[in-house]
């Protein structure tokens, strides 16, 4: 598996798209900091980008890579290697190279603008941890969709739809249910609904660490009480890990039976 991982990883690291992705983050990082020297303000703007774009890019990259390397996969499967290591190796190759681009692309500009001297280190760290989690989650989900759908067009549409659902539609339904059931106590409902969507969970985790959390008022206080404790942080990290583990397990399960 390590060999395949290594191969996929270096294949991607050498590919043009990884560099485009890396350059994109470098550009965003430097432009943001050039326009606004305040690191903590830049973290807020960056949050919007990470929470929306990272899942989108993870999804598209994952699904493209799977479909593109189909012949290679078939070739590999003819060799005496474990099926699991073929698929998981490819998945980890994509996910890790994307995460690396993210970490380097955003890390470099912030470090060069004096991240370690500022008090935004923790917020920024949390941002990167969340970004990495989102990359792992959405690449895994994309792989799942790609393995189920032989038809590329269909697979691609489903993948985009999944992103659209989690990034936009989910919040719409969430908002509507909050408005409709406004008469009922909604504290636990909102916490659970947030937990179930990795994008919302990342957004709230970052928001609560920033100054802007004061705007959240009473609701924010409940969230702060929950996510501010060690149990809360542990629980949300567990949920994010579960969001990675379940799709990855599904890749493993599917890979054992998948027919070509």
């Amino acid at each position: 598996m390590l060999k395949i991982l290594k191969y996929s990883f270096f294949d991607l690291v050498r590919s043009r798209w990884s560099y485009v992705y890396l350059l994109f983050y470098l550009l965003i990082g430097y432009v943001l900091l050039f326009l606004n020297h305040d690191l903590s303000k830049a973290v807020i703007t960056l949050m919007n980008i990470i929470v929306i774009l990272v899942p989108l890019i993870g999804t598209i990259f994952g699904i493209m890579y799977y479909y593109n390397s189909r012949e290679f996969t078939e070739l590999l499967l003819a060799q005496p290697v474990k099926r699991m290591s073929v698929f998981l190796g490819q998945y980890l190759g994509v996910a890790l190279s994307l995460s690396l681009s993210l970490l380097i692309g955003l890390g470099l500009p912030f470090i060069s603008y004096g991240l370690f001297q500022s008090d935004a280190v923790w917020e920024f760290g949390l941002l990167l941890v969340n970004g990495t989690f989102l990359t792992l989650i959405f690449t895994a989900l994309a792989f799942n969709i790609a393995m189920i759908n032989e038809n590329r067009i269909k697979g691609f549409s489903y993948a985009i739809l999944m992103w659209l659902f989690l990034a936009v539609i989910y919040d719409g339904i969430f908002l509507m249910s909050l408005v409709v059931f406004g008469e009922y106590p909604l504290d636990n409902f909102s916490i659970i609904a947030t937990m179930l969507n990795p994008i919302d969970l990342s957004r709230i985790l970052i928001l609560l660490k920033l100054d802007i959390s004061a705007l959240l008022g009473y609701t924010g206080a409940i969230f702060q009480k929950f996510f501010g404790t060690h149990t809360g942080v542990l629980l949300s990290m567990t949920i994010l890990t579960l969001w990675v583990a379940l799709p990855v397990y599904n890749i493993y399960r599917k890979s054992l039976k998948k027919d070509f």
């Binding site: 949050m47 919007n48 929470v51 929306i52 990034a167 936009v168 919040d171 969430f174 908002l175 909050l178 408005v179 406004g182 909604l186 504290d187 909102s190 947030t194 919302d200 957004r203 709230i204 928001l207 802007i212 705007l215 959240l216 008022g217 609701t219 924010g220 969230f223």
Partner: peptide
Amino acid sequence: ETIILLRSL
């Protein structure tokens, strides 16, 4: 309560 959707797309 809907304030928790602050900065959502």
